[in-house]
């Protein structure tokens, strides 16, 4: 019974669709990585072509903070 570890899980906004596949974005498994460290997360993505969306709040919030932390390590 291995638990699946995800550090962040973001629901897809209902209005977002993949521009190419026209599929609504859904929550899917993704991975952030920086300076040799990986962070498993769930992000909105196209179920078909797997195009990932990183919302601004996440990029300028948590992601930026962790980048800075890692840079100071």
């Amino acid at each position: 019974m291995e638990e699946k570890k995800v550090y962040e899980s973001i629901e897809a906004d209902a209005s977002l669709v993949c521009g190419q596949c026209q599929e609504p974005l859904v929550k899917g498994s993704a991975k952030f990585s920086y300076m040799g460290n990986a962070f498993p997360v769930e992000l909105p993505m196209c179920p078909k072509c797997k195009l990932i969306y990183v919302p601004e709040e996440l990029a300028l919030g948590r992601v930026l903070k962790v980048e800075k932390e890692l840079e100071d390590k």
């Binding site: 460290n37 990986a38 962070f39 962790v66």
Partner: peptide
């Protein structure tokens, strides 16, 4: 390592 990164991510 995993524990550490998780804590880092979660602040």
């Amino acid at each position: 390592r995993e524990h550490y990164l998780q804590a880092l991510w979660q602040g």
